[in-house]
Each structure stands twice: as C-alpha cells, then as structure tokens.
Computed example of a mutant assay.
Amino acid sequence: MTSTIAQRPTAVGTSRQSHVVADAFTMLRRNLLHIVRYPGLSMFTILGPVVILLLVVFVFGGTLGAGLPGVGPAAGRDAYLAYVMPGILLITIAGTASGAAITVSMDMTEGITARFRTMAISRGAVLAGHVLGNTIQAVIAVALVLGVGLAVGFRPAAGPIEWIAAAGLIVFIAFAVSWIGVAMGMQSKTVETASNLPMILTLLPLLGSGFVPTQSMPAWLQWFAQYQPFTPFIETIRGLLLGTPLGWNPTLALCWCVLITAVGYAWSMAIYERKSVR
C-alpha cells in the first residue's frame, strides 16, 4: 500500500487537490482493510452498547420508564426503550472514538506514521483516511445497534424525511467524533493511553439527556447536562425518530458538530506538523 503511494508519478497538469483526494481514499482503503483484519475492536464497539441497552431496558426499564413524564407503570418498559434508544446510539458513536485513537496510536508507536511523513503523501490525507474509515465503522455500528433495538421493541414514528435527516446527523456526529478520536490517539504516548482517553466521550451521553431527563438532575449537573454537546445530539435524534419537540436542538447539534470537527482537525494537524519537524 505505502510503496504504491511512494512510487506514484505526478501527472503534468494534475492539481494538488486531486492528489490529496486520491491519497485520502488510498489511506481510507488501508484503514478499512485494517478493520476487516482486526474485527475484535469493532465487535466490542457494538456489543458494549447492546449490553447496556438490554440491561437498562429489561432490568431497570420498568422502574425508570414509569418515572418518565406522562407514562404509567404498565407502559414503563416500552416507554423507556423509546426514550433511551437515542442515547444508546450516541454511546455507540462515542465508543468508536476509542477505535480511531487506538489505530492512530498504533501507527504512531510502530513508526508507520513516521514513514508516511517521509513520503509524497498529503499530511491531511493520512489523518483523513483514519477519520473516514472510523466514520464508516461508526455508521455500521449504529445501524447494527439500531437493529437490535428494533428487534426488542423499539418503534420509531419517523417518516422518510425524518429518517434521512437522522441518518445525515449521525454521519456528521460520527465524523466530528472521529476527528477528536484521531487527535487523542496522536496525543497519547502509548496505545494503552489511547484506548482509555476517549472513554470520557462515552460518559457524556450518561451526563446528558440520554438516560434520564436533565430536569431530574441536581442544579449544578443540570446546567452541564443541558449545555454539553451530546444533549442536543440526543434530543435531535429523539425528536426526529419519535416526534418529540425539536426546538433549537438541531441548530445546536449542527453547530457543535462544526466546532468539534474544527477542534479535532486543528489539534490533529498541529500534532502531526510538530512531530514532522523532529
């Protein structure tokens, strides 16, 4: 793979941008092959949210669902499944950041990234390959977890337009989170650190409206839960799939996606550039 890139001639009249795109797709192919050859990490990304879903719904769902506004004890479990499913989907996306961080850290510690820096490859394309590969993996994981949710009784009320909007937002969130995961992987000095650092992202749906309404939290935690990025993410997906009020959540969700992507990209490139001059 790398020798192919190194030996690629530069065609006369070919724009630099076209080379960046070609390099990005070459690196994407490499990362997709890595996912296929090492399926254990992908399986863990999927099984974790599935276990959480089954646990909270079938063990705690009856009690927690009965405490939701306007829900009686008889419909508690079904109501809670509908309520918690968007949060489970966001936990799935957050969990894929660990995969991105681990693969980037492995490339860094094994010297593969250092070799890429000496070759005629766009620096942004090296990182973009990781991001695009992880985004695809995240979308597949979300689809599989959603399938489990449907199998155990989740019944969205969304129409075709709402499904398309929800899918688009999920892809955008996965893309943004992947950039943060790549940055964390580059920042980490060991693979072990890279596997643990993104775990903070998986806590954010728990500390938002993923599992309980933010109004039920203490005042100090309620403030954080309402203004952190995963709450508008969850509320937008919930509104699109279940028909709950959207309010300003879609706008906030998109703004957070743009901000997270920009921060992750700038952080990753700064580290890459700094290590390239050593």
Results as ranks from 00 to 15, higher is better:
Ile234Val: 09
Gly87Asp: 03
Gly61Phe: 08
His34Trp: 15
Met269Leu: 08
Gln7Val: 11
Phe25Ile: 09
Ala262Asn: 05
Ala219Lys: 13
Gly99Ser: 07
Thr2Cys: 10
Val51Gly: 03
Phe60Thr: 02
Pro39Leu: 12
Gly168Cys: 09
Arg30Trp: 12
Ala120Tyr: 08
Phe154Ala: 04
Arg274Lys: 12
His130Ser: 13
Leu127Glu: 13
Thr10Ala: 09
Thr96Gly: 04
Gly95Gln: 10
Ser15Ala: 14
Gln222Glu: 14
Thr118Leu: 09
Thr231Arg: 01
Leu47Ile: 11
Ala262Ser: 15
Trp256Asp: 07
Arg238Lys: 00
Met85Asp: 00
Gly147Asp: 13
Ser195Asn: 08
Gly159Glu: 10
Gly95His: 07
Arg37Gly: 11
Val152Cys: 06
Trp256Leu: 07
Leu197Cys: 11
Val152Leu: 06
Gly40Lys: 12
Trp223His: 12
Ile35Val: 14
Asp107Met: 02
Ala94Ser: 12
Thr2Ala: 15
Ala194Gln: 11
Ala143Leu: 10
Ile164Met: 15
Met43Ala: 15
Ile136Pro: 00
Gly133Arg: 06
Val277Lys: 12
Ile102Gly: 01
Met199Lys: 04
Val71Ser: 06
Pro156Trp: 07
Ala94Lys: 10
Gly13Trp: 11
Val104Gly: 00
Ser105Lys: 11
Ala141Thr: 08
Ile161Arg: 15
Gln187Ser: 12
Pro160Arg: 15
Gly208Gln: 02
Met186His: 07
Val12Arg: 10
